[in-house]
Simulated scan of single mutants.
Amino acid sequence: MIYGVLGLLGVWTALYGKRSQAEGERREAEAIAAGAAAADPATRQDESRSHGPR
């Protein structure tokens, strides 16, 4: 029984680690994109057009 619990803990740790890493990579990509948009005003979209038709 203890090996089952340890096995489940190992699986949970691996899955949580992958999910956490993917979230960190997503946040990093968003930060890079936001930094690039702030640095180059020519690439910014007009906010009135970015939300679609109203």
Rank of each mutant, 00 (worst) to 15 (best):
M1P: 04
M1Y: 08
M1R: 07
M1A: 14
M1T: 09
I2F: 09
Y3N: 12
G4S: 12
G4C: 05
V5G: 00
V5I: 15
V5W: 07
L6Q: 08
G7D: 05
G7S: 09
G7I: 03
G7E: 05
L8T: 03
L8Y: 06
L8G: 13
L8V: 02
L9W: 07
L9C: 10
L9S: 12
L9P: 00
G10I: 09
V11P: 00
V11A: 08
W12R: 10
W12Y: 14
A14N: 03
A14W: 12
L15H: 04
L15D: 06
L15Y: 10
L15V: 15
Y16M: 06
Y16N: 11
G17E: 04
G17W: 08
K18N: 06
K18D: 08
K18T: 10
R19A: 15
R19T: 10
R19M: 08
R19Q: 14
S20F: 05
S20V: 05
S20A: 15
S20Y: 05
Q21D: 13
Q21L: 13
A22R: 14
A22W: 03
A22M: 07
E23S: 11
G24P: 01
G24W: 01
E25H: 07
E25K: 14
E25D: 13
R26P: 00
R26K: 14
R27F: 01
R27L: 15
R27E: 15
E28I: 01
A29T: 09
A29Q: 14
E30N: 04
E30A: 11
E30R: 12
E30K: 09
A31N: 06
A31W: 03
A33R: 13
A34I: 02
A34R: 12
A36K: 12
A37W: 01
A37M: 13
A38Y: 02
A38M: 08
A39V: 03
D40F: 07
P41E: 05
P41G: 05
P41L: 04
A42Y: 04
T43Q: 09
T43Y: 00
T43A: 12
R44Y: 02
R44P: 01
Q45W: 04
Q45L: 15
Q45V: 10
E47T: 09
E47D: 11
E47Y: 03
E47L: 13
S48T: 12
R49F: 10
S50Y: 02
S50K: 08
S50N: 03
S50M: 08
H51K: 14
H51S: 07
G52W: 04
G52D: 03
G52Y: 04
G52P: 02
G52R: 02
P53S: 05
P53A: 06
P53R: 11
